[in-house]
């Protein structure tokens, strides 16, 4: 009994340390974002700034094209999230439930594309988009992220677990395959769809590398890129940068808190029961 108690205490200590390691930088950023003093790297670190102010948050909005970056981010993220949910579900349904020649080969090719590191694809993607005159445009920002193989795989695994009887009952009731997908499978796949939506939203909202490559004028920047552009070689306004960073992490945080249940289900899935 005593040993179990000791184990619990040890476990809590390790958990506490790990939590501090993860949450520490965030708390430090939060503290800096409220700091009135631009010289924030003094030792010892002060988590509660003496001259706390909201000025940095006001300045983010007033001094920077924050509204435009926000619009760009929202546009890219919304389109990519909706499109990923729809196409991943549609392709997942096709691979899980329909029979057609070459199905397994196509699926294997899709899966093997996951083995290629994303970084290798940056140059070919850029060349293709350049040929299509889509560099520094919304098309260039959005198109490459409209659908992802990981999401297709996730949805395919989920749909595979839904009993075949349900699909056949719908066929006898008079459904077409698209109707089965739309009216029967989608409504009962909320946990998987939410997982796909959350993953895509998070990835798209925080995406930095691709916007860096595909955009070159400030009006096309997304929020992470806009924030990064505040870093200068000689002088960086850290409180302003941190205020912006905190602001852009809020939606992800909110979505995670609201859909936490689905998120955890989604992680544990690749195959939830219907």
């Amino acid at each position: 009994m005593k040993q179990i108690k000791l184990q619990k205490i040890l476990f809590l200590i390790v958990l506490g340390i790990m939590t501090m390691i993860y949450i520490g930088p965030f708390l430090f950023s939060l503290s800096i974002s409220f700091s009135g003093d631009k010289n924030v790297f003094e030792w010892p670190i002060s988590f509660l700034p003496d001259d706390a102010t909201f000025a940095n948050y006001r300045n983010v909005w007033n001094e920077l094209p924050f509204g435009k970056w926000l619009f760009n981010s929202v546009l890219v993220t919304t389109i990519q999230t909706i499109s990923n949910v729809f196409f991943a579900a549609l392709a997942g349904f096709t691979f899980a439930r329909l029979e057609f020649p070459g199905k397994n080969i196509i699926f294997t090719i899709l899966l093997s594309s996951l083995m290629i590191p994303g970084i290798v694809l940056l140059v070919p993607k850029f060349i293709v988009l350049n040929e299509l005159s889509l560099i520094n445009s919304y098309g260039g920002l959005i198109l490459p992220g409209l659908v992802s193989v990981t999401n297709i795989f996730l949805m395919r695994q989920f749909f595979s677990t839904i009993p075949k009887d349900l699909e056949q009952a719908a066929l006898i009731d008079g459904c077409s395959y698209f109707r089965i997908f739309w009216e029967i499978f989608l409504p009962i796949s909320k946990p998987a769809l939410a997982a796909v939506a959350i993953y895509t939203f998070q990835g798209s909202w925080n995406e930095f590398l691709w916007p860096v490559i595909v955009t070159y004028t400030e009006d096309m920047y997304t929020l992470p890129l806009g924030m990064a552009s505040l870093r200068h070689e000689l002088l960086t306004d850290w409180p302003l940068l941190m205020a912006g960073t905190i602001l852009i992490s809020l939606p992800t945080l909110a979505i995670f808190i609201i859909f936490q249940r689905y998120f955890v289900q989604g992680v544990s899935s690749s195959g939830l029961k219907g």
């Binding site: 009993p163 009887d165 719908a170 006898i172 009731d173 459904c175």
Partner: peptide
């Protein structure tokens, strides 16, 4: 003919009711 055009109804072992 497809199942819907055969004018049949089927009851399944696992009921196959639409859960939503």
């Amino acid at each position: 003919l497809s199942p819907k055009d055969r004018d049949i109804a089927m009851v399944f072992q696992n009921y196959a009711l639409y859960p939503h």
